[in-house]
Simulated scan of single mutants.
Amino acid sequence: MSGAALQVSEPFDHAVIVCNDLDAAVARWQALGFTLTPRGFHTLGSQNHCIMLARDYLELLHVTAPSPSRQYYWDAQQRGDGCAAMSCKSRDAFATADRLRAAGFQPSDPIEFSRPVRLDDGSEHPATFRVTALDNAPGARYFVCEHRTPELLWRPEWTAHANGATAIAATYLVVEAGEVARTANAYATLTGGAMTHVSGEMAMLDIAGASFVVTAPQALADAADVPGLHATAGYAAIRLMTDDLERARTHWRANGVRPEDVSATVSVIPGEHANGVTLVFEQR
């Protein structure tokens, strides 16, 4: 399928990182300099903490028991921590589901769910979402998220981080070398992103200012410009923009975190310190 056939504007929304031990994950990500939202309890039976950035976010997710709507994440969690899925924003999950079906995909019917959000003033409100997903999308799960109450998530007290993180700059999806072109073309259609680079082992899409990179295992280090970076399959790395890398490095040192400083403007947190996903911080 060709992404040029059907362009839409659905920017990057968030990446889902499954965590077997959510309490330990909270301590780990706070040590990395992130502000976490209070624990959320979904009506679907999962729990989370979110790391809200200016336009997108990271979700630390824990599934307490298998269920039809959480089965994919339950299975991923049983295999170990890591980035299990990515999503784009949708203004209308039902319309997006129709668009994807017309393009030849088979997304789930949109489901609506919520979780209570407690604000600093003590009040509690239901944050509500609609989601349509493709569990069998190339490489890993893909879904779109319609935020019914975005004002309950993007709040000043949750978007300021000690490491200066401001936005997701890129995600890196690793697939077999022979699947790079097919996977990238599929995501161009799924997201409406424009293909900006294609080679035999790597392809890059621009999704409303964030890069979505599909790469073969042997090309990951070059694609991310991180020497020695490797992974076999799935979402291997997330690149984050920071407005103050030196402040991030100071915070990490104070909290016993030892990043790999690749250059004056890039530091890397290995996956074993971030629940299975490598974090690349870049000063911008």
Rank of each mutant, 00 (worst) to 15 (best):
T159N: 12
D56E: 06
S211C: 12
A102C: 13
V117A: 10
E201I: 04
Q77D: 12
E179R: 11
T278G: 02
A140W: 04
A27T: 14
M204F: 03
A84S: 15
P259M: 06
T278Y: 13
A219F: 07
D244K: 10
A223W: 06
M86V: 01
N255E: 13
R99T: 03
P126G: 00
L119T: 13
T159C: 02
L173V: 01
D23L: 13
Q78G: 09
E176Q: 15
H273C: 03
P270T: 05
T64M: 07
M1D: 01
P116Q: 12
N185K: 07
T96F: 09
V262G: 05
A65I: 03
L119P: 10
R39M: 15
Y57K: 05
S267F: 07
V174L: 08
R70Y: 01
A221L: 07
T189M: 10
Q30V: 11
L119R: 12
S123L: 09
L58M: 12
Q283G: 03
P116C: 01
N255Y: 10
H49Q: 15
E124R: 13
H147A: 11
H42M: 13
T232V: 10
T191C: 10
V266P: 05
T166S: 14
A25K: 03
R182W: 09
A95R: 11
L229I: 06
T35P: 01
E124A: 13
S211D: 15
F34H: 03
G192N: 12
A137R: 04
G178H: 13
L100D: 02
D222W: 12
Q78L: 10
D98N: 11
L153N: 03
G193K: 01
S123W: 01
T215Y: 01
Q47V: 11
M241E: 07
P11T: 05
P156N: 14
G256S: 07
H125V: 09
S67T: 14
F281P: 01
P138I: 00
A208E: 04
V180L: 11
F34M: 11
L44P: 02
S69A: 15
R239T: 07
E246G: 00
A31D: 15
E112M: 15
I207K: 00
S67R: 13
P156Q: 14
D56G: 06
T96S: 12
A65E: 15
A4H: 08
L53M: 06
Q283F: 13
H42E: 09
